[in-house]
């Protein structure tokens, strides 16, 4: 194996291991903290794939905002009682079996995937000559301008909806 492959192997192994650790924690706070480590590793994988902007967003939005939101909600709920009871559902064997079958199916289907030409115009040299963020910004504000505006609407709905749902009396 070459150096990039070892690098990928480290990140892939850690991501798989950390996801297993995350979904098996009894205490949700521990789960959130393991997820933080997991997200940092995913950001490392993004850097490896020449997606610097997304690596930064992964850390800032996921690790910085969403996980803190999770921690806040766990703090608001009183979970002392939850820690002493069974952590899996009654039919958990069935659920796990569905997941394993799904994994076998998808892995066998996608194992032989290769990229066929024609390739796009954003080769590594093209991105490097302009900078990763500038390239992404140019695409996002020209070709994907309408989805970008719709994303802002989605976030607005989320802000209003979260307030309306969590408020006691409107």
């Amino acid at each position: 194996m070459t150096a990039p492959q070892w690098f990928f192997a480290y990140f892939a192994g850690m991501i798989t291991l950390l996801s297993v650790v995350m979904i098996t924690r009894r205490n949700p706070v521990h789960g959130v903290l393991w997820m933080l480590v997991l997200f940092v590793h995913i950001a490392g994988l993004y850097l490896f794939l020449n997606a610097e902007f997304l690596a930064a967003i992964q850390i800032i939005v996921y690790a910085g905002a969403i996980l803190v939101l999770f921690l806040f909600v766990i703090m608001l709920l009183n979970l002392k009682k939850e820690l002493t009871v069974r952590k899996v559902q009654k039919h958990w064997v069935l659920g796990a079996a569905i997941g394993v079958i799904f994994a076998l199916f998808v892995v066998t289907v996608v194992a032989g995937i290769t990229v066929l030409p024609p390739l796009g115009e954003y080769s590594i040299e093209a991105i490097r000559s302009e900078g990763s963020i500038m390239t992404l910004g140019k695409v996002m504000y020209t070709k994907y301008l309408l989805p970008f505006e719709i994303a802002s609407l989605v976030l607005l709905v989320a802000i209003v909806g979260a307030v309306v749902l969590a408020k006691k009396r409107i």
Binding site: V20, I23, R25, G31, L77, Q89, L94, G95, A96, I98
Partner: peptide, 22 residues
Amino acid sequence: AVVFSIGVVGFFTRRNLIMIFM
């Protein structure tokens, strides 16, 4: 695919709503 399947297993087996969200 493997990480997605781990997420599926967690979604189907866990009892805690927060863990399902995660």
